[in-house]
Each structure stands twice: as structure tokens, then as C-alpha cells.
Design a protein around this nucleic acid. Structure first.
Lengths: 136, 136
DNA sequence: ACTTGACTGAGAGTAGCTCTCAAGGGGTAA
DNA sequence: TTACCCCTTGAGAGCTACTCTCAGTCAAGT
């Protein structure tokens, strides 16, 4: 059993966010102890993990709640749940592609600046060092 | 020269967002025609591209504005700009790793559901098909 | 002249946190 | 016992970055 603080540390999600997710119904039935303190079980950590996963690819909280609710209904909802996961996976793959593209741009810019800096340092030994390039 | 609508289509960013970015000072000096209509040049598209790139890895608008302002100041800011790009690239690489991890979970779930569905379909020919698994 | 369509800025609304706050419980120390 | 400290709680304010609606302007087409 874990307190919210421990879960926050373990799963790298803030306590605030965990409470927010809990209040939004994204975790089914988190137990409380006699002092009304949330007690996360290993099983609950699994929920945190999947919620975190869905959020990280941009699924909105309403859709996550839908998924969670489907899970609670039972096996009859397996086809719909399967569809959600499949669609989410495709979305994640697209994000991967997009990220790769952006990384290429960042690589290019990084090299560009490196060249610029290298040349500028040579200029320190060069009396003619007033040319302004001003590229982005 | 492009209208805001054309840029929106070309760069896959909504017109609203482009106006919002423009108002936030993320594009320096977009020209207007005699009817006060924004006219994006090829050069401006470059700005849209870099802003989109920085946003897509989670850089906040204030930091993007900082970067843009540095670019306008001139060559003296190259080291700081280089630092920003380098840090952003590292952030993007971390996001890539995170996304890979999440993809593994989604792969696992997808396979899991596939198995479940396959078994359930076999059960249609099996009179004993009432076992409830209810796993997430 | 009238309609259509693109653009404008102002400003309201939204999602998803993020943070602050006051209140309250439990544990140790003097 | 009282004081102190840390953790937790819910309520609710505040924030970012859109996202959308609206009323209005302008130019071109019929």
C-alpha cells in the first residue's frame, strides 16, 4: 500500500495531478484508511500507469474516463477497449514520426550554431571580425 | 506571399493559433497589405516552423518569445540561442524515450486484447463460454 | 446594390493542470 | 500535556495555451 506521495514519486506524477485524476474518476475505487487517507495498491499503480500512458499521447481525460468505465463494465466491452488501444497506438506512432521530424530540425540548428560559434572563435584571432550574419 | 489561411493549411496550424502566436510576438514583423491583411513571406514560414517545433516539444510561449527576441538582437546572442536549441534537443530525445516506453505498454495491451478476442471467438463454438476475465 | 467570402480584433470559454489555503490527524520531544 | 512537525484532505483560485464566437471591415463577383 502506498500513500499519494509515494505514488507521486514512484510514477513521476505530481500529487496534485493524482488527486485531480482521482477526482475525475480516472482511478476506480481507491481505498481510504480510517483517517480518510488514500491507499494505493499495486493494482492501483497499474491504473496510474495506463492513465499516464494515455495522457502522454494526448488522450483527453473524458476519453480516458470512458476507457476506465468500459474496463469496469466487464468483458462485453473488450472490442471497444481494443479499438481504443489500437487507435491510441497509431496516434503514438504518428507522434513518434512528428518528433523525429522536429528532431531533424533541431539537429540542423544545433550544427548550424556550432559552425557559427567555431567560426566566431577563429575570428578572435582575426582583426576583421565585424561581419554580422544574424541568421536564426 | 501567403495569407493566414494558406499558412494554416501549409503548416498544419489553425488560423486562430497563428493569430495567437503572432499577437504573442512569436513572429517578428509580419507584413500587412493595404487592407491590414497579414502577408507571410517564405522567411516568415521559417519562423512558423521553428515556433511549431519548439511548441511541439513543450517549450512555453514565453521561452519561445525569448528565443525569437534573441534572434532579433543579433550575433551576440548566438551562444545563448545555441544553448536553448541544445537543451530543446535533449528534451526531445527524452520525450522520444518516454514515447517508446508508452508504445511498449500499448503494444502489450493490444496483443493482450487480441488474444482475448481470439479466445472469445473460439468460445462461440464452445458451450462453456461463461468465464469472465475482466482484465484491463 | 447585394451577396459571398476572407480577414480583423476583442473577448469569452475550455482543458488540464498547478498552486494556495485552512483544517485536521498522527508521531515524537520536552 | 502541550508543542511542534509533517502529511494529508477538499475547495477553490489562478494559469497557460489555445479554441471559439462574434461583430465588423473590405473587395470581388453577379
Amino acid at each position: 500500500m502506498y500513500t499519494i506521495k509515494e505514488v507521486a514519486k514512484l510514477m513521476d506524477v505530481s500529487e496534485h495531478t493524482l488527486r485531480f485524476w482521482a477526482k475525475s474518476g480516472l482511478f476506480p475505487n481507491i481505498k481510504r484508511n480510517e483517517n480518510n487517507i488514500r491507499q494505493f495498491s499495486e493494482h492501483d499503480l497499474g491504473w496510474v500507469k495506463i492513465v499516464k500512458c494515455l495522457r502522454s499521447v494526448g488522450t483527453d481525460n473524458k476519453s480516458i474516463k470512458r476507457y476506465v468505465d468500459l474496463c469496469l463494465i466487464g468483458d462485453s466491452t473488450i472490442p471497444e477497449r481494443y479499438g481504443i488501444i489500437k487507435a491510441t497506438r497509431i496516434k503514438a506512432l504518428q507522434q513518434m514520426e512528428e518528433l523525429k521530424k522536429q528532431l531533424e530540425l533541431l539537429d540542423y540548428k544545433e550544427n548550424y550554431y556550432e559552425e557559427l560559434i567555431k567560426n566566431n572563435q577563429l575570428d578572435k584571432f582575426n582583426p576583421v571580425n565585424e561581419l554580422q550574419t544574424s541568421a536564426v
